[in-house]
Each structure stands twice: as C-alpha cells, then as structure tokens.
Design a protein around this nucleic acid. Structure first.
Lengths: 235, 235
DNA sequence: GATTCTCGGTCTGAAACCGTACCCATAATA
DNA sequence: TATTATGGGTACGGTTTCAGACCGAGAATC
C-alpha cells in the first residue's frame, strides 16, 4: 500500500519550528483533549484559542443559511486552526469543530498574535501552512464542482487517512453526507461501491482503508495536488 | 438597484496603503494593459509579477488533469494576484489569467518580496486580502457543492458586476461554462431563466444586470457572505 | 433478555445535469 | 455581397443526484 502523505508524530508545524520560535509559544501552550464534536471556532465570533492537533481531525465548515453546510477544509497534525488570526483578523464566517477525537495543544489568540508580532520567521511558517490550506480549499471547490460522489468520497477518505494513525476511520455515513454536502443514501451507495471493488472495508461506523493506491485512482484526480504541494513546502 | 459591493476607482489595495508603504512599491510598479486571455500566472511555474488590477477581471483556475478546469477565485480592483508570493512561496498549482480586459499595475515578485520584508504593515494589508480571498474560495466550494447552476450563475454575475464599471458584462456562455464547470447548454438554460424573470438582459456575448437585488435573491445564499466580510475588513 | 437508539440498506419518483450533436443567427472578414 | 467563424438555442437519451420514507440490523442501555 502506498504511503500516507503525512506520517505519525506530534503536530507538524510546532515540531518544525526553530527553538527560539517554539520558546515564544511554549509558555502559552496548553495540552488539550479534542473530543468529538467540540466546537473550536464559532461562526462570526472572535476566535479564543488557536489549536495545533497532535492527533484527531478537525473540520472547517462553511454554513449556508440553513442545512446547507459543507466542509471546505480538513486539519490534522499537519496544521492548525485559527488562520484568521494568522491573517490579521479575529474571526471567520466558517465554523470549526472536532470531527475525529484526538489530542492537541492550544494557545490563546492574543498570545499567538503577540508571538507572531515578535518573530517574523514564526509568522512565515504559519503563512506557508495557510497557503497549503488555501490550495486544499481550492481543490475542494474543484472536487465539489466536477467530481462524482464516489470520487469525492475517495478523496475525503484519503485525506482523513493521511491524518489518522492506522487504517481504520471512525465515521458514519450520516456524518460523511454532511462533510460532502450530499444525501446520506448517496454516501451509502458510494461506500458500497468502493467496498465492492476492494478498496475499503466498511462496517457499522467505521471505514478501513484496504487499497490506498486504488483509492487514489478512484478519486480521478481529485486527490493529490494539494498534498504534494504541501510536501514541497514542508518536506 | 442595490449598490455594488465595490465602487469605482483605482486598485483598492494600493490606494489604501500608507504613504510610506506605497513609496516602497512605487519605484517598481509598472502600468500594464490586461488584455483578454493574458496569462498572469502559469501553473507550477515561478510567479514573475504580481498584478494589481485597476479595471478588468482576473480568474484563478484550478486545473484538473484534462478539461476539468474550474474557477476557484475572481480578482478585480479590490485585490491582487500572486498570493503565493505574499504567503512566502513562489508558485501555485493554479493558473491565473485575464477574463475581462482592463488595466492595472504590476511589480516583479522579487521587489514585492523585498517590500514585504521591509514593511510589516504592508505585508499585513496583503494578508488581510488573502484572508478575504480564502473566504471567497470557501464559498465557491460551497456553491459548487450545494447550489444549482442558475444560483451559481447569479452569484458569478454579481461577483463580476462588483468588479465592472457599468452594468454590462462581456462574456459568452462558452466562457461561463468553463468558469462554472458545467455544460455550455446548461449555461444557456440558466441565462434564459434569469432573463425570463427580468433580472438580466442577455444578448450575443453580453449580459446586462437589470435587477441586482433579484440576482442576490436568486443566488439563494451563495452570494454575500465573503463580500460583506471583505467590507468589514477593508471598509 | 427486552427496549431503545443509531446506523445503514433500499425503494420510488422526480429533478438536475451530462455528453453530444445539429442548426440557425449574428458578427467579422473577404 | 458572399464567406467564414463564433455564439447561442434546442433536442435526445442517459446518468447522477435529489427528497423523502421505510425498515431491518447492530449496539448500547436497562
């Protein structure tokens, strides 16, 4: 099976900081649990903390007026929440919540602002990640516009797999339908399809990746570009 | 008719810079024409110049393997190209080209990097725009995933209208079909629909906005959030 | 073991879109 | 004016996805 884009270990951004930069953050960092469904950022409200996941997955969701929510980005140990703070404002119309439980570290937004202010290289590291995230969102837009459900599902499974230890993802069809912005039976159908051709194994509440390369093919070009760009920037 | 989100005048970012910040850029800025279809950034190639449009519209397009291109962002006099440079890298997998002819000013990427390096407030202004652009891309992802063609078309017309002097947009169905990532006859159908209910007037190669408010309603929530957020940040 | 809740498989009918092709109108060009 | 290129209207069959609902299987609780 082809290797994941992201390897195990603690948060990628924090672990790649210089000693001086990390020292700026360290006094303000607190280890936190990231329990399922915990809301990390509320739409249009000042962001209180910025989170660096060490494990687990966080979703950024655009909320249309009603039940038209849809995911625009996925964050794991490669990244951080609170990009609005990094970009110089204090809030975002999106909402951010824990989608797969894990642990992480967080820092109050004000302390992050102060640290960014003190160290240009620190800010620069965050901005490079922001660029990677922007690409991810762009390819989400592409996938939503041009790919079939099964292709988008394959992409999503791969992105979640990248950010998970092991090959088993705990997620329900109901949940996936919200992430992908499609009907729940549509997800069921796509999951069965990917299972029938031997790429995943599905059971109640879990999906296990069996054939990563096959999934990448099945995504039909929807997966890969932002990921390799991320590796170019951070590898 | 409800007012446009963006008013007339020169490039919004440049005109809002402090005198000192503008002085850093000014020696390197060159006035340039932005002719239709001119390529401003090539996929995966180092970005040579960063453009600040004073008029006209520029499209950022994600290119899938073949003819699966689709627009992920629209830039007019409110913004700038070359966000990859602002974020600290030199290239992007997207391509950027002129979609509606106009004029603007440009600066070599290296000179922009130098100016950013010299002035933190300058960098900050660019980052605030990058945040607005990220939001726009997020809502494009939402629109692509959850909105019907006619709603996406209404959104696109409004975004183009915001960035155009007057109410007449020069664009073909063929072109719109690429931007929206749908079939050309699908665009024809949607254009006729919006014309039939009196929101636009369409003739060969042009679309004239007749009822902006009606278009905003027709977009069914797809238009508005990134625009008002932009105004919060720059108003 | 019985009850309750969650999850997922399935069905029906309808709507939205697709790929493709054909043809006519308009505009530019010779 | 005749020709050519481009833009737009339309039609056909087929696929994808939708909205909504129903029901059984598995898991958790009592």
């Amino acid at each position: 099976m082809s290797p994941k884009t992201l390897q195990k270990g603690p948060n990628r951004i924090l672990s790649r900081l210089s000693a001086e930069d990390f020292a700026l953050l360290e006094p303000h960092l607190t280890a936190v649990d990231l329990p399922l469904r915990r809301q990390l950022e509320v739409s249009r409200r000042p962001i209180e903390h910025v989170y660096f996941p060490d494990s687990g997955i966080v979703s950024v969701v655009a909320n249309g007026d009603k039940k038209r929510n849809i995911e625009v980005g996925l964050i794991g140990r490669e990244g951080m929440t609170g990009l609005a703070v990094v970009m110089g404002t204090d809030r975002s119309p999106h909402q951010t919540f824990v989608q797969s439980a894990g642990q992480g570290r967080r820092i109050p937004s004000d302390d992050l602002r102060e640290a960014i202010h003190q160290s240009r290289p620190l800010h620069q590291k965050f901005l490079l990640y922001a660029h990677a995230f922007l690409l991810q969102t762009g390819y989400t837009a592409m996938a939503n516009g041009r790919s079939k459900i099964e292709e988008r599902l394959a992409r999503w499974i791969l992105m979640a797999h990248d950010r998970t230890d092991g090959d088993t993802l705990a997620l329900t069809h109901e949940f996936l339908s919200i992430m992908l912005g499609v009907r729940r039976p549509g997800v069921t159908h796509a999951v069965n399809l990917l299972e029938r051709i031997g790429l995943i194994h599905a059971s109640r509440g879990t999906i296990t990746v069996v054939d990563r390369e096959g999934l990448e093919e099945s995504s039909n070009g929807a997966y890969g570009t932002p990921e390799s760009e991320f590796n170019r920037l951070f590898g």
